[in-house]
């Protein structure tokens, strides 16, 4: 390979064998490569990598913080839901208690009212019975009076001389009793 390189170099500059094996350019390449690599290393290690690393860790932190916060909010929402449910259950129990109380009270009033009404009805019916009895009694008396009057009138009309009120009355009384 070396002989080809030499031959080619000797023939013309335009047609060397392998420029890679032209050792005369090595110091130049190595020098500039080292300069470029050192420059790149400094740029990366001083500027680029810390910056990107910081951005990535910031993002990681932000995301985990957000997740944590979301977890906390979720927990709070669950607690709120729990509180709401207990409040709802309490309210329901309270409502049932109030309804039962009201019902009991109403029942009491109702019972009282019914008892009172029963008493009144009983009193009224007793009075009515009394009055009916009275009416019945007075009706019987009236019948006797009417009968005596009719009998006296009849007797007066038939035998005006024989009109003795007392006799007529006792006769009527005897007959109606029969």
């Amino acid at each position: 390979m070396a002989t080809t390189t030499e031959a080619a170099n000797g023939a013309a500059d335009a047609a060397p064998g392998m420029p890679q094996l032209d050792f005369s350019t090595f110091p130049n390449q190595i020098f500039w490569l080292v300069v470029a690599l050192v420059a790149l290393y400094l740029i990366l290690s001083r500027v680029a990598l810390p910056r990107i690393g910081a951005v990535l860790s910031d993002r990681h932190e932000t995301i985990s913080n957000d997740l944590e916060q979301a977890q906390e909010l979720k927990q709070r929402a669950e607690e709120a839901e729990e509180a709401y449910k207990t409040a709802l259950a309490d309210a329901r129990a309270e409502a049932q208690r109030i309804a039962a109380d009201a019902r009991a009270e109403i029942q009491k009033d109702l019972d009282k009212a019914i008892a009172k009404a029963d008493a009144e009805i009983a009193a009224k019916s007793a009075e009515s019975e009394k009055r009916i009895a009275e009416i019945r009694d007075s009706a019987a008396d009236d019948v006797a009076i009417v009968a005596k009057d009719v009998a006296a009138a009849l007797v007066g009309a038939v035998l005006p001389s024989a009109s003795n009120d007392a006799d007529i009355a006792s006769a009527v009384t005897d007959r109606t009793k029969g």
């Binding site: 350019t25 110091p27 130049n28 390449q29 190595i30 020098f31 500039w32 490569l33």
Partner: peptide, 9 residues
């Protein structure tokens, strides 16, 4: 091409 010559490299 000296060691310091700026080249296409």
């Amino acid at each position: 091409i000296h060691w310091y010559t700026p080249t296409n490299v």
